[in-house]
């Protein structure tokens, strides 16, 4: 799953630690989500959407799986 967390965070001049505190997760988790290594749960995705005042699909985009 692709996401725009890194871009949105940079636009606000937030560090990964700032975003981690705002989302109530560890900095490692924010880093893993930004790098696409870990897909967040639906509640965490909603939390991010509320934080950035955007729709979930504007932040997270599904990537079609390769056959």
């Amino acid at each position: 799953m692709k996401n725009r967390l890194k871009v949105l965070r940079a636009e606000r001049d937030w560090t990964q630690a700032d975003l981690a505190v705002a989302l109530g997760v560890s900095r490692q988790t924010v880093n893993a989500i930004e790098k696409g290594k870990f897909d967040p749960s639906l509640p965490l995705a909603f939390k991010a959407a509320r934080l950035f005042k955007m729709a979930i699909e504007e932040i997270f985009q599904d990537e079609p799986q390769k056959p």
Binding site: A20, V21, G24, V25, S26, R27, Q28
Partner: peptide
Amino acid sequence: MNRSIIGSDACSPESA
């Protein structure tokens, strides 16, 4: 929300 580990690094003082 319990914040003793979250909102921090795996190597943070709270986690440690």
